[in-house]
């Protein structure tokens, strides 16, 4: 095939793919694969205030004690893991009663706390709001909480 024809086909594919991917994004969500760079569309600094969401994971043990655990450590993730994975796994797409989810938490806790008998995992979704001017904390509250019974 001559280069001229290849070029036309290449650009024709691009011309078809572009409206298709924008249409999919409009009706569903950002597709993959798709020609997109980061949207950064969750603007958090508005009217002089700034807010952020964080996760606090607490493990309660059969002996009555408890321990805080880092989400990155719990997920066995690394720096390359997209940050939005944490929101999905520990909040938006979490089904605390799904047996597969429960089994996974049980397995991870057995690795992380081999000598303790974990009973419950509590994931608190925390919303903190700060003043932009001096970054002072205005409010901090639990938006919701998930409880996974592993013991």
């Amino acid at each position: 095939m001559e280069p001229r024809l290849r070029a036309r086909i290449g650009f024709a594919i691009l011309a078809l793919a572009v409206p298709t991917q924008f249409l999919v994004k409009a009706v569903a969500d950002e597709p993959y694969p798709g020609l997109f760079m980061p949207p950064f569309n969750n603007v958090t600094a508005v009217h002089g205030m700034f807010s952020r969401t964080s996760f606090e994971v607490t493990v309660r043990f059969a002996d009555g004690g408890h321990a805080r655990i880092d989400t990155e450590l719990l997920l066995a993730a690394n720096d390359a893991t997209p940050t939005s994975v944490y929101a999905s796994v520990f909040d938006t797409n979490l089904d605390p009663t799904d047996p597969r989810t429960v089994a996974w938490f049980r397995g991870r806790l057995a690795v992380l706390f081999p000598r303790r008998d974990a009973k419950t995992v509590v994931i608190d979704v925390i919303r903190s709001t700060y003043r932009l001017a001096d970054r002072s904390l205005i409010s901090r509250h639990r938006v919701r909480s998930h409880q996974i019974e592993v013991g």
Binding site: V24, A28, D29, E30, P31, Y32, P33, G34, L75, A76, A77, N78, A80, T81, S88, V89, T92, N93, D95, D98, R100, T101, A103, W104, G107
Partner: peptide, 16 residues
């Protein structure tokens, strides 16, 4: 291989 061992219930793939 980092994702090995994650449960199927964690899957939330993008459209596609």
């Amino acid at each position: 291989t980092l994702v090995a061992g994650r449960p199927d219930s964690f899957l939330a793939p993008p459209p596609g």
